[in-house]
């Protein structure tokens, strides 16, 4: 199988907990014509990490760098589950049985196709893709984020 196909580029941005910084990141992407598909904000006492999945990762990255943000690009996985009771639980049972280490995750619901999308950062993405695909989990590719 093509492991690379299921690596979803994610943009992480360092922001200080200061007024207007979150807005500035989204504004930089707006100006670059980038549409944000999913995002999460992790915060500590001093700073936050904003994570984005977007339709145009390269443009988003360049626009943020251009605006002097500290940006990291890395790969995560996107998994579609049914948007119904027990859907996430079923998936996490598989993840747990496969002994995959999750760094963090976040989610969004796509109301158009009645599915929820789980975004995972696994410690070892290659093996996670292989194993989850072998377990018949529905993996999404970047195409999906360009489409919706």
């Amino acid at each position: 199988m093509d492991i690379e196909k299921y690596k979803i580029p994610q943009i992480s941005v360092f922001i200080e907990n200061k007024k207007g910084r979150f807005y500035n990141t989204t504004n930089a992407m707006r100006e670059a014509g980038v549409n944000i598909r999913a995002m999460s904000l992790a915060d500590t006492m001093d700073f936050g990490i904003l994570r984005f999945v977007v339709d145009k990762p390269k443009e988003a990255y360049d626009a943020l760098i251009e605006s002097d943000f500290i940006v990291k690009k890395n790969d995560i996985m996107a998994i579609a589950i049914d948007d119904e009771c027990g859907g996430l639980s079923k998936l996490l049972k598989v993840v747990s049985d496969l002994d995959l280490n999750v760094e963090y995750m976040y989610t969004f619901v796509n109301s158009l196709d009645k599915r929820a999308v789980m975004l995972f950062k696994f410690e070892d993405i290659d093996s996670a893709i292989q194993k989850l695909s072998d377990s018949n989990i529905n993996l999404l590719d970047q195409e999906y984020f360009n489409r919706i």
């Binding site: 994610q10 992480s12 992790a42 990490i49 500290i70 963090y104």
Partner: peptide, 13 residues
Amino acid sequence: ANANLFFDEMKKQ
């Protein structure tokens, strides 16, 4: 901060 000091994972940070 710069790209060398910023880690996407909170643990590494």
